[in-house]
């Protein structure tokens, strides 16, 4: 997926006109795992609604596998390949059973009986919910975390190759968050590209391999996590956090420790810090 010079204005030509995105250039490849971060109002939700054709750029263009969106490929076709999961998607659940809810989009595409059933079963498996235990239950009898997984399964049943999620873990407990990340990691290792909007830098540090920072409608950073968080004071200045693991490394460096930072995950930071501390003690 490629965005070239995309600018987007809400309510153009009115007194309320507001430019939410300015000159966005972005390429997303198969198998990417990207976190899209930025302060509230920076344009994250506006950007991701372009990715599956819900919004069309005021100027600039999008292309998918080299075909121009809106010219060679219709928004409808795009939506089949790119699954978009809104914030609090569980609020859209409405069917009597979990299986019917997950199968809804498939039936609307004209699929029937056994094909729907097998895809529903598979989608539940992908989000880590046991078919026998969940399929015939009412979505409304489930916990908030389980409901979120069912809503995600409804999108996975369409077999997207690219999954876009707007704050998928917000409001969930530790177990719910872990379940979402297990699911995303599994999908990604099967080659599904992931782009998730999040506020939690600690989550970003554990999963994403690339981070895009938006501020006031512009991309201000686009890089690997360990390089992004070297801009700690810039990030704090625009109201973003840095992961605790990266913070530890920077604060120890200020105290004279020599620590390499090749990943910002807890595990790898623990290894680097332990090595540096032992080295210092040995001297």
């Amino acid at each position: 997926m490629e965005m070239a010079n995309v600018t987007f204005e809400y309510l153009p030509g009115t007194p309320l006109a507001h430019t939410a995105l300015t000159d966005i250039n972005l390429t997303i490849s198969e198998g990417d795992f990207i976190a899209l971060v930025g302060p509230t109002g920076s344009g994250k939700s506006t950007l991701i609604q372009h990715l599956n054709g819900l919004l069309t750029p005021t100027s600039g263009s999008l292309s998918f596998r080299g075909r121009r969106v809106g010219v060679d490929v219709s928004p409808l076709e795009l939506r089949r390949e790119i699954g978009l999961i809104f914030q609090f998607p569980e609020s859209q659940l409405f069917e009597h059973t979990v299986a019917d809810d997950i199968g809804f989009g498939l039936r609307r595409q004209g699929l029937t009986g056994p094909e729907v059933a097998s895809r529903v079963e598979n989608a539940l498996l992908q989000v880590g919910l046991d078919y026998a235990h969940y399929a015939q239950r009412s979505p409304f009898s489930l916990s908030g975390g389980e409901q979120r997984l069912v809503a995600i399964a409804g999108v996975l049943a369409m077999r997207p190759r690219f999954l876009v999620l707007d704050e998928p873990t917000s409001g969930l407990d530790a177990r719910g968050k872990a379940a979402i990340f297990d699911c995303l990691d599994r999908l990604n290792s099967d080659g599904v590209a992931i782009l998730m909007v999040t506020h939690s830098m600690d989550e970003v540090a554990e999963s994403a391999r690339r981070i895009i920072v938006l501020n006031e409608g512009k991309i201000v950073l686009d890089d690997k996590p360990e390089r992004i968080f070297a801009h700690a004071s810039f990030l704090r200045g625009i109201g973003l956090d840095i992961p605790k693991a990266a913070e530890l490394v920077y604060k120890l460096r200020e105290k004279g420790f020599e620590i390499e930072l090749d990943s910002v995950s807890v595990r790898s930071v623990v290894d680097s810090v332990a090595a540096a501390v032992k080295e210092r003690c040995a001297n």
């Binding site: 407990d173 530790a174 968050k177 992961p243 605790k244 693991a245 807890v266 930071v269 332990a274």
Partner: peptide, 14 residues
């Protein structure tokens, strides 16, 4: 089903 502060996880890893 409850998490701990990230600093606590780092401390425990060390």
């Amino acid at each position: 089903g409850v998490g701990v502060p990230k600093a606590r996880l780092l401390a425990r890893g060390l």
